[in-house]
Design a binder for these strands. Structure first.
Lengths: 326, 326
DNA sequence: CTGAAAGCGCTAACAA
DNA sequence: TTGTTAGCGCTTTCAG
């Protein structure tokens, strides 16, 4: 910048004005400065700017795994909103490890991100207190913060969606509906179990519930156990997209009715098409990011708790009749 | 930091030493400093550190779209390597727009990223010259830079993979093999067309080639035209993952033999399973990131041009016999 | 409309 | 082992 100034024969501040598009610079002077900038290939050092201004124009995003279609869809939506606002996105995958989540968040904070969107992996977020107190807005998406913290949250209607799936299967004559859900320590898994249980009411049978991370071998074993029992299920409700796919692979010729939580690519091309309770990850990302920028613009209202609806998409697998062989 | 120093009764520099784990601080002093840090909730301002040290510990990644499984797989791998090296990742999607690619790159550079990994959307990257000259390493992944720039590149064997797909179909008795590829302005699409053409030799028939962005309607129309002709294809070779999926949806009951470039989730569960030429996006990301860090460690050898092999996975659709109805 | 000086929070270089 | 000083490149403040 110093070089540009002397090349253009002006003071530092004038270059700064031109670079920032501030008013009050004679057009001819501005032109000379721009010429010098081009000639010298100057580009402003954002770190210095940040240091001086105290705002980084950077948003931090912590998700579970970018390679998971749900989170990559959410990421893309967040990114678009962030770019629209002239900011940049620092992102990281926690891999469902609370320690890595915390490390990422702390690193982001050390870099003074202007705001944070996170899908938490852990259930203790009191470590965010200092940041929140200094006014850094944080929005939780997909899962709420752990106890003792009340901040903006954008969740899907997990309980309602699960209940809807179960009622759909009940409506098609099923009475033995198994639930295969992820580790109950994961918020969404626990919520969906609750919706399942509520909708089943007296038909609930804990022997039809499996709650664990969907590793192919364990899923195969669980299905074998379920179907080899005296009173096997006629329908399955799977608790998330990854679980649904794993179950489909592990079914090995069995064809129970099936509804999965989360939509996934090609669900419509399988035979039968896979009925799902669909969330909209891009919508969730957009809503979370827009809420964050609203906070950054100064909205200081009480924490918001937004719940996004889900919708059941019938494609065939969830409409197979109960008790009927096929 | 000043506050911490006075709280601990030491000088600024001593706090700095403790924060950076530099040697030569009395354990007791260090302990006092750490106590003050905890008490005051201090966290180092990275912007100031960056300004002083000149290195940001940040890598920029520009891809086409995080929501595309190929790129999200690549992203995740890059992210893992970046984190291993104690750095953070700034990422952005160009959406296949050269203008946005350039904006992202320039913004990243203004923030003085230590290095850049990019999947280019445009074909003119001379704007990178100044950055390259200041020593910022850049690695191109999936697609090479435009003319006039020779930098590190990690590509898949597009030509060889396409040729392999075609030879596979030829081997199963097909003579009329159509190629449905993306816009030929996209490097990988052009390369795969070349491999297709080379493998077909005298059997090449330009009427069996469609090169355009895979919008559902146009794909439907193209397929109708191909199959309604006098001498329709008995096999299809699709040029990328998105194209394959769009074609599968648009086939509308037709069942030609099919091999797709790029693997995708559930390809194995369709009936018949979809045979593909599989790339490994995570591998590509890892190789690119590791090459970048090698450069950052000072490796100043000539630009490297790494080509990753691809492999054909037979799942059924590519093994359907030619000329046979089914 | 333009410029000079101060200082953002940190680390490098150099004492003590 | 600890402290002092200068300055990274920019923007803010205040003065021409």
């Amino acid at each position: 910048m110093k070089d540009v100034a002397s090349a253009a024969g002006v003071a530092l501040k004038t270059v700064s004005r031109v670079v920032n598009g501030e008013p009050g610079v004679h057009p001819a002077t501005a032109e000379r400065v721009r010429a010098a900038i081009d000639r010298l290939g100057y580009s402003r050092n954002e770190s210095a700017r940040v240091l001086r201004r105290g705002t980084t124009a950077t948003i931090g995003l912590v998700i579970e795994d970018v390679a998971d279609p749900f989170y990559s869809g959410l990421s893309r939506a967040v990114e678009d909103v962030v770019i629209e606002h002239g900011c940049l996105l620092l992102s990281g995958s926690s891999g469902e490890e609370p320690g890595r989540e915390r490390e990422l968040v702390e690193t982001f904070c050390a870099r003074r991100v202007d705001g944070l969107i996170m899908v938490p992996a852990g259930d203790d977020h009191t470590y965010l207190r200092p940041e929140l107190e200094t006014g850094t807005p944080v929005v939780f998406a997909d899962r709420p913060p752990g106890a003792g913290l009340d901040v903006d949250t954008v969740l899907a209607d997990n309980v309602g969606g699960a209940a809807q799936a179960v009622r759909h299967l009940l409506g098609h004559g099923h009475r033995r509906i198994a639930f295969l859900g992820d580790d109950p320590a994961i918020f969404t898994a626990a919520e969906r179990l609750q919706g399942y249980q509520e909708a089943l009411g007296g038909l609930f049978d804990e022997r039809l519930v499996v709650m664990r991370s969907p590793a192919p071998e364990s899923v195969r074993a669980d299905l074998a156990r379920l179907f080899d029992s005296d009173d096997p299920p006629t329908a399955l409700f799977t608790g998330n997209g990854r679980y649904t796919v794993t179950v489909l692979r592990a079914l090995a010729g069995r064809r129970p009715a099936l509804v999965g939580f989360d939509d996934f690519e090609l669900a419509d091309l399988l035979d039968p098409g896979v009925s799902v309770v669909a969330q909209d990850p891009a919508w969730m990302g957009r809503v979370a990011a827009e809420l964050l920028f609203r906070r950054l613009r100064g909205d200081a209202g009480p924490p918001e708790h937004i719940q996004l609806p889900v919708r059941l998409i019938a494609r065939g697998s969830g409409e197979l009749p109960g008790e009927a062989p096929y």
